Amino acid sequence: MDAVTPRRDIWLSLEDASAIGAARRIAIALAKEGGFSEDHTGRIGVAVSEAASNLVKHATAGVMLIRPHPDAATTLEVFSLDGGPGMADVEARIRDGHSTAGTLGIGLGAISRLSDAWDVHSQPGRGTILTMRFHAPGSPQPDERECGMYRPIGDEVACGDAFAVAGRGDTLTAIVCDGLGHGIAAAAASTEAVRVFREHTDATPAVIIERVHEALGGTRGGAVAVVRLDRAARTAAYAGVGNISGWIVHAEGRQGMVSVHGIAGHRARGIREMRYELPPHGLVVLHSDGLTDRWNLSGYPGLLTHSAPVIAGTLLRDWAVRRDDACVLVMRVER
């Protein structure tokens, strides 16, 4: 995510039929900006319309996020999140002509054909997370092993939380920042943290935190955490200041990573870097305090086998608190 470029994440509440057209128009406009062909843009419009129509007709509290990928403007991402009724047999619902009244199965066959990459996780009574990616021909394709999402509080346009990922493949460095408070001033702090991060991605996480701390002195400040993930060695180096939560997640549970108390830009003493061993098929998850620490993935059968976008969407849908900005970053460990 480029710190000097306005964030383009667009959240839509899918409450009535008028929202279907709005979702389609937004997706088409972003696709054209990303250099997609007319034919490809048409496919995107149909796929987004199918997903939006499902939410309006069958979902509970359905929302959609449409955005250019944070690190690849030629990739368009669409997230469809709802709280029910869910589907017991997703594979059956993908087959054209097979749907059950009151479920979101209708349209999945078309979505699977029209998307360049897609994933879905559904649970009866809990809801469905559907993700789609569209890539402009000939453009590099982002790795689905990592995904970050943020959502502003209430009707705020600016989000005080931010994330960024640098690197590709086996070695990644990532930051999550929660600017103090909400709105434009909080967003300015987190945007500055990302800018400094981008300039120092070769440094260790502790040094990056120190540089961010120095740079945020003229802002409200915020909570910041940086992690370096080495998939080949299965290790993570981590440093943080404030209440960003870092977790190592595996099938049996999760392990917390240690941050020090303080506010980057104002009070940040004793910054230290910790090193952790990573499980072979686990996750590294960073999130702001806009997500409750009480989240638990054990109640989502099969979720850990899904892509990072679906896991991030699940965490944001079910564990974000409504009285704060929220940000979550998910990175898979496997090579």
Rank of each mutant, 00 (worst) to 15 (best):
A193D: 00
R151Q: 14
L316Q: 09
A72F: 12
L12P: 02
M149D: 01
A326D: 04
G242H: 08
H213W: 05
E277L: 08
V241E: 06
W319I: 09
S298R: 15
I153L: 13
A186F: 05
I106Y: 11
R93N: 12
V285Y: 01
H281W: 07
E144F: 08
I311T: 07
F163N: 01
L304G: 11
G222Q: 12
A233T: 07
V157A: 13
R294T: 14
Q255Y: 08
D155G: 08
M149R: 01
S37D: 04
V90M: 02
Y276T: 06
I271H: 12
M132N: 08
H266A: 10
E210N: 13
A206E: 15
R8E: 10
I244G: 01
A166M: 08
A47M: 05
I153Y: 10
M331L: 15
V227Y: 07
R332Y: 03
A223R: 06
A73G: 07
A110C: 13
V48K: 02
F163D: 00
G148F: 01
H287Y: 12
P6N: 03
W319T: 10
S18E: 14
E156K: 12
A51D: 04
D293W: 06
F197M: 06
P279K: 02
T314E: 13
D318H: 14
A193Y: 00
T173Y: 08
I66Y: 08
V333T: 10
L229S: 04
L216R: 01
Q255T: 14
A186Y: 02
P142Q: 04
A19D: 15
I28F: 06
F36G: 01
M331H: 01
L30G: 01
A158N: 08
W295S: 12
A185T: 08
R7M: 12
A264Q: 02
G154W: 04
I20Y: 05
G253A: 09
H135G: 03
I209Y: 01
Y150D: 07
G253M: 10
A251C: 04
G102K: 10
V48C: 02
M149W: 04
R113P: 05
H58R: 09
